[in-house]
Every structure is written in C-alpha cells, then in structure tokens.
Design a binder for these strands. Structure first.
Length: 579
RNA sequence: GCCCGCGUAGCUCAGGGGAUAGAGCAGAAGCCUUCUAAGCUUAAGGUCGCAGGUUCGAUUCCUGCCGCGGGUACCA
C-alpha cells in the first residue's frame, strides 16, 4: 500500500504511455523474462539514469530478480541483453555493476522521433480512460479570494488540464462555498451594524469588514455565535429576508470570483455551489438514519461514528446542515448523474480528516462505485501569524497578481523591451510568475508566504521558460527558406541530449496525471530549457554553413517550441513570442 | 493526550528502492563585432534531524526518539 494515495504502484497497468519507447522497451524485456525464465511479470521499471553516460534508459530488473531466481544479477542481465540487442532502434546495451542494464538508442532513430512531436504529442496516452469529477478552488462567498486560494485554484486547474490531456474525461465542477454558518454571521453583522450604501459601493472589502467586525465583537460576547447560528437556521428554513440577503451576497461574490478566474484563464463545466445540493439533504438524512449510519449524538445532533477516527456530526442540534452533509449530498448527486470512476478533491492538507470521514461515510451509505481521492497540498501561512480572514488583514489574491504584474512592468522597462503592447506582456509575465511559483513546488507541508518567492523572476521561474521560448521563436522567425535535412546528418551530443529530453515528455505528463502533481511538469520543462539555453549559447543555427545541419537545427528547435507550448498550456501559463 | 504530515547546502526547494544526492537564490571568478546577456560557463557550498531495522543496495520503506506544522463532533 502506498503512503500517498495519489501515487501509483509499479504493478499498476498503464504504467507507460501508449505507443511510447518505454512501452516498447518494457514489452521487449517482459518478453525476454517470459521466454528465458518463465516469469509472468507484466511491468519492469524503465528508468531515466541519473547520468546520461549510463544510457538513455536503464533497467534494474536483473537485480530485483536475484533473490527470486537465486542467480547472479550480471548473469541474468547477460541473458536479457541477448534479446534486447536485436532491436534496430537500440544502438548499444551495457551491463554495469551491480547489474544495471543500460540502453542507448540509435541516433537515426532519435532523429526520426522528431517527426512525431506535433501539437498532439503526449495526448491520450492513458490505457484506461476514466470519468473524473474534480473539486478545485472552493472559494467561499462570504469571504474574498485570498492569496491562499491560489494553491487549490492554480494547482487544481492544472490537474484538470493534465487529466484531460492524457485522455480522461474530466468534469470540472466548481463546488463553491455559498452556504454555511458563515452566512449566519454575515447576515447578523449586516443587520446589526452593516452599512448598506457602503457595501453597494465597494462590496467585497466592506463585506469583509463587517465579517471581521463580527469576529471582534464575538470575542467579547460569545453569545453572538449563537445569534449567527440562529440567522443561519432561519436562512436554511427559508426565511424570506435572509434568503434575499444571502442571494445578494452570493451574487456579489460570484461576480468577483469570475473576474479573477477569467484573469487566471480558469473555466468550469458546472458552477454548482453548496446550496445546490440542499434539496437533497432531507432524503439523505432519512436514508442515513434508516441505514443506521447517522445516529443520535449529543443534544439531538446526528453524527457518524467510526472505529478508528473521531466522530463526525452531520446534522447540528438545531437541525441545520454542515459541510459534510452537503458534501455527501453532492457525491450522491454526481454518482447518480454521471457514474464517475473517480472524484477528486484538490484541497489543503489541513482538511485531511474531513475527507477521510467523508469518504468513509460515503462507503457506509453504499456510495462505493467510485474512487475518492483527496489530492492534498500544503496550506499557505504567513510569517505574521495574524494574517487570516477573521482578523481582516488578509492578503487578497488580486493584490498579489497586481503586485507581480507591476514588478514585471519594471523589468520590461529596465530591459528596454521593444514589444509594442508592454501592458499585455507584463500581465503574461506577472501572472505566469505567480502561477509557476505555486505549481513548481510539491510540498504537503505548509508554505510560508514570501513576496520574493511568489514573484520570482530568476532561475527556476516562468520567466526563464518564457524567455527561452521567445529566443527560440526569434530564430524560427528568421529561418525562412531553411530547407530540411538528410537523416544521415551528424548531430552533437547536446542535440542528442535535447532529443532524448523531448521524447520523455509523454511519460512525464502521464506521471504528473497519475500523481496529480503539476510540479513534475515544471521540473521537466525547466530542465529542457536549461539544455536549450546552453545549446543556444554554444551553437549557432542561422550562421551554420552546412545546410543539413542548419536544417536539422531549425527542425529541432521547432520541436522544442512545440513541447514548451504543450506543457505550458497544461500549466495554464501563457507564452509571449517576443519580449 | 491521540491521529496525520514534514525535517535535504546559509536561504527557498527538487529527488520514482539504484550508480558520484541535484537546482535556484545569496556570495566568488569569467563570457556580448554572431540567432534577444531576462542568457551561458566555472569553482565553492551536505553527518539527507538522531538512532536502530529490512534489503544486493535506503535521502527514499519500517520502528523509536527529537523538532516544527496541522487536525481532533455541531466552522469550512
């Protein structure tokens, strides 16, 4: 059993992209294992060696089999290598102590692979397609989008893109928080000290103000929490005034969210908030009771008890619903409507217990036809611990984006860019930087917010990728009239390395899709760009005398552009052709 | 208390049981008469928290300890 439920195991089918080199190599070795040793193993690990001198691919199977076969790994490797050697696309196979099989691909074969790198490269590589419903971003209508929302929003959106690209059917449902006790607080605050005109003028900050004010007052007078719960109770019971107020607040928030989603390039297929599932809750409660899953708890609340994890309330003592209740209703709804294979929640790690409970309850209710996954990520914290919605000094998502764009503007000014639409370029660079800084890390630990890090424009950053892209675009623009090349063209080591990197892309993307980890793609494209920049510096393309070589170089760089485009699209980061 | 996660270079972080643990930033030394120097090259920087265990092989898996963070019934 894997530690992280998002991680695949080596026994899983569909381990390699369909029609990939890895799939071929795997079949070759698996066939040899069967022929020589009668083994039925279907997957062997084809690895990328730490150093290219150890081959383009390597396999460790002979060491893994030493105990099972009770033979020396070198001896096993020798037998396997006899079969591998015969393939025309492999130029050389080496055995290295303590038993690695290192495989080198033939140069002509590698050059030929460039043909396949087109707009669809690495697409639909998954062997078993699934229908997946995702929950990302989850903004809360009672509060503005803070910088911490960027994690689930940006990572989740990229996960949606990646899952789709490799061939899954993805239903992007924006399950957003438009219901819950926080509305009771907001409604109470509005009624007792809210200023309607102020809210109309500048809704989002003013709603936050009264929300914060409520918490300040509640600290002095804890009875306010009960009053807020009472307002929520009235709302859930359909009180006309409260429902109207709620609708108004939700509308204001929704407009705000959409504005930001548009700026980030994020779209959904459905926008069903929590309130959408309310009509299903009565039946759910009846069913839960009937199945003895929902049982009477303290003070008349309904709870679910488990063997090893804390008890979880599903209906409050005053009869109102909870986050869990609406979440279960949502699962019921979608299972009936779409029969998905999987439901994915891209939510921070602090909510782990919530999801363990939710998934467990779903199974107890018989909702087990689908696989549930909490793709968890770290929370964003601040050096100053008082940064929270309740305290009010929240850092808004929009502020961060604006700050990044204005930093980008300054850089564009410094570099004396000749681009005509500098504002547009600043937006592309600024937003890209924020996205990349979030996407490139894989921490389940909390992330401490840091401006320098969030707005990184050096080293492993989106700007580096974007700059590489524009440099290559520039060469391609000037390469008109450059002809093709003969397949016998001689290539340099660095060109060979570059091709080997490019053809790894399908597997990298597939792996990112299996682990729900976009950062794998960031690491990959950064490495590719490092190679490209190094190449750019050491070889000239357009001045190259040899026509074949020049043709090949242009063609190679076109493939580079294609790969950068595809993966940056998966990360939802725009690429400028000029900077 | 119990449960979960994390601890890798001065800082921020990659690292799929595999070969000499890698990047960026900061600091040091170089490279623009050639396709965008927003770049490239080189050197320096490590007890992979500590101690055991499993394994041909452990930064990676297991156990214990230490440190940090999160969660722990009517918040989401």
């Amino acid at each position: 059993m894997n530690k992280n439920p998002g991680f695949y195991s080596v026994t899983e089918k569909s381990f390699y992209p369909r029609n990939s080199i890895e799939e071929d190599l795997n079949a070759l070795i698996v066939g040899s294992l069967k022929k020589n040793f009668g083994l039925k193993q279907e997957i062997v690990e084809i690895e990328y060696p730490s150093d290219r001198k150890f081959g383009d691919y390597s396999c460790n199977i002979s060491m893994k089999l030493t105990r099972i076969l009770k033979r020396d790994p070198i001896e096993i490797a020798n037998i396997l290598v006899e079969d591998i050697r015969g393939s025309d696309y492999i130029s050389r196979v080496e055995i290295k102590r303590p038993g690695f099989i290192n495989i080198f691909l033939d140069n002509k074969y590698l050059i030929d692979q460039l043909r396949f790198i087109g707009e669809q490269y690495g697409k639909d590589t998954v062997a078993y397609k699934r229908k997946i419903i995702t929950d990302i971003s989850h903004p809360n209508a009672a509060k503005p989008l803070g910088v911490h929302h960027l994690l689930s929003t940006i990572i989740g959106n990229s996960i949606n893109n990646i899952l789709k690209y490799v061939g899954h059917e993805v239903i992007r449902d924006s399950y957003w928080g438009d219901w819950g006790t926080q509305f009771g607080k907001l409604i109470y605050a509005y009624k007792s000290f809210g200023d309607k005109d102020k809210i109309k003028d500048d809704p989002i900050p003013e709603l936050l103000n009264i929300y914060v004010e409520f918490h300040n007052r509640a600290e002095e007078d804890p009875s306010l929490d009960d009053k807020a719960r009472y307002e929520f109770k009235k709302l859930e019971d359909g009180d006309k005034e409260n429902v109207e107020l709620w609708g108004w607040i939700v509308k204001l928030s929704k407009d705000e969210f959409f504005k930001l989603y548009k700026r980030l390039g994020i779209v959904f297929d459905y926008y069903y908030g929590e309130s959408f599932y309310l009509p299903l809750i009565d039946d759910l409660v009846i069913e839960g009771k009937k199945k003895n899953v929902f049982i009477e708890g303290e003070e008349g609340a309904l709870v679910v008890e488990f063997k090893d994890i804390p008890t979880c309330p599903v209906v409050k003592s005053d009869g109102t619903s909870l986050y869990h209740t609406r979440d279960i209703a949502r699962i019921k709804y979608w299972l009936k409507k779409e029969s998905p294979d999987e439901m994915v929640y891209v939510v921070d790690a602090a909510q782990k217990l919530h999801f363990i409970q939710l998934f467990e309850i779903s199974k107890m209710l018989g909702l087990s036809s689908c696989k549930y996954r909490h793709a968890s990520f770290g929370r964003m914290r601040f050096k100053d611990k008082s940064m929270s919605t309740r305290k009010g000094n929240i850092l808004l998502m929009e502020e961060v984006l604006n700050e990044s764009v204005s930093k980008a503007e300054k850089i564009i000014e410094e570099k004396q860019s000749s681009v005509s639409d500098k504002q547009r370029l600043a937006e592309v660079i600024g937003i890209g930087a924020v996205k990349y800084s979030i996407l490139s890390q894989n921490r389940t630990t909390d992330i401490v917010f840091d401006w320098d890090r969030m707005l990184a424009f050096d080293g492993n950053s989106s700007l580096y990728i974007q700059y590489t892209y524009t440099r290559v675009c520039s060469i391609i623009r000037k390469s008109e009239g450059v002809k093709g090349y003969k397949e016998t063209v001689d290539i340099l080591d660095i060109e060979r390395d570059l091709i080997v990197s490019l053809i790894r892309m399908p597997r990298v993307v597939l792996r990112a899709s299996k682990e729900y980890c976009p950062h794998i793609i960031c690491n990959y494209i950064y490495e590719v760009c490092q190679l490209v920049n190094s190449y750019y510096n050491s070889c000239h393309v357009l001045n190259e005398k040899d026509l074949d070589t020049r043709g090949f170089r242009v063609s190679l760089l076109k493939s580079v552009i294609t790969v950068i485009k595809i993966v940056m699209d998966l990360l939802q980061i725009e690429l400028p052709e000029k900077m």
